[in-house]
Structure formats: structure tokens, C-alpha cells
Amino acid sequence: MQPLEQRDEVEMLSLMLLIRRFEERASQQYQAQKIGGFCHLYIGQEAVVAGAVAAIRPDDYIITAYRDHGHALARGTTAKACMAELFGKETGCSRGLGGSMHFFDKEHHMYGGHAIVSAHVPLAVGLAFAIKYRDEDRVTLCFFGDGAINQGSFHEALNLAALYKLPIIFICENNLFAMGTSVERSTSLKQIVDRAEGYDIPGEIVDGMNFREVRDKVAEVADSIRKESHPSFLEVRTYRYRGHSMSDPASYRTKEELEKYRLDDPIIRLRAQLTREGKLTNEQFDQLDKRAKETVLAAVKFAEQGPELPVEKLYDYVYFNGAKA
């Protein structure tokens, strides 16, 4: 299989643009009440997942929390299947049964979309356990927020991963807040990465606004894990531009803070790097952006037109084989 560390940076920039435009459109469709429930946008954090998937192979495993649209798109789930999920359609990646917080895509090794904070971290350890059990050449990437690191399940999972030397990268997307609670107000440590030290797991801090830095670090760690199975921990520092969810005005932080991070925008950064190196012209960038917007518009159309799962089929999804209790 072609290792993705060689994936073209322009292609990855275009993925980040796709995520950004997808989220903007999702926000608009939420306001138009085409999307219901809770909806958490990934805008500002695109370089984290883009950098990470650029460094792994398509058959590696990934799993994340409820801010999951970007992760599915990065893994290769189509914008159509993602948007249709938000619209609750049968053509969605979880058949319209999971919604924004529960994106799943088995074919692309995307193991969810999990909405109970930290509940998926032990699952990630289970994915990694299965890799080692079958002696496979894969790694598991487990994404979670800064808010997850104070749950018991998180701690239990880290210890298990270290104890059994499992092939997993814990990727903490530290965007400084869990809803309205800043990291200083939730965590007794000065640095999140120090959590790893307590379990003898190697950990590093990564600049999550810098695509290249994320990619290179994940590539290096994945490479080391493939040579000899072990867990690893990356605290990736990033920022979410929007509120926690669609209903959060984010009044717990200042405009200045947001502006500071916007100036460090991951898309602008990668674009500037590529432009400076003569790998991307302004026209090409505009073209990429235009394509992203078109893809997302087509996804909205697809989502609107898709069928909904008929009520009669609901019991087919309670037990495998469709047996009714």
C-alpha cells in the first residue's frame, strides 16, 4: 500500500478547505433547521486531522469524539454522505440514525463519532489491542479533546495501552476549552502532555495550526510504532473559532483571543508555505477553494434529495440480524 506520507500537500490543503467549507455550510443549514440536535464545528482545527491522516495509511484505524465531521471527511467519507447524515437521511454515513455526533464509516476505518466525553478512548485501546492480537501492520489514532483527560475512562485506557504496549497514538486536540471551561480551570497539570508521563507513555507537544508539523510528528511516531508496538501521546495545540456547539455564544473568551488565532489560521499558513515555495499560485488556490465550495453545495443537494429510513426498518438496527427481542 502507498504510504500517505507522500500525499501531495496541495491535495491536503484542498482537504482542509473542504472541511472548512463543509462546516460553514453545515452551520448555515443548521440555522435553516435542516439539521437538528447538537452540532459541533471543526473550523480552526483542520490542520490537526489533515496532518494526522496525511501521515498514516488508509487501513490504519481512527476514532474520535463528537466534533467529528472533519475526521470523516479526512478519512475519505464523501461530503455527500456526511451532509446526508446531518440531514438525517438514509444516504448518510450512519444512515441518518447517528447524526452529527455519531459519524461512522467502516469502509474507511473511521470507528466513530462518540458523544460521551472520553467513552471512546477505551474503545480506541480495543482497536489497538486487536491490531496487536492479529499481528497486523497498523496503528490506531485516537482523537479527543482537552476536556476528556479528566475522565476515569481516559486514565484507565492510557494505563492499559501502556501495560499491553499497544500500537496507538493518543491525539489530544487541545483547543483550550471544554465548553466554557478553560484547561486551567479543569486540569491540575500545567501541561496536558504530562498526563502521558504518568503512564510512561512518550508524549510531545505539537503546533496544531501547522499542518506540516502535525504530519511530520505523526509520521515519525507511527513509524516508530510500526517498528515496535507502543503507545504514544501528542498534545496538539489548536483553537476552535466557533462556539462549542451551535447554541453556544462563546462569551467566556475575548474577541482578541479569537483574532490572535485567526491570524495563525492553518489554511492561510499552509497556503503561504506552498506559495512561498512556488508550489501554488493564487489562481490555483482560488480554484481549489471553488472546487471545495462546489463539492459542498452538491453535498447539500444530495442530502436534501435523499430518502429517509422507513419506520418499518427501525427494528433492523437494534440487534444484528434484525431479530426483535
Partner: peptide
Amino acid sequence: DVPMPYNEDL
């Protein structure tokens, strides 16, 4: 007797 589906009609 089912886990809750996301879809509004369901």
C-alpha cells in the same frame, strides 16, 4: 424498544 435514532421522523 430501540436505541434513539437521530432522524426527526424516526
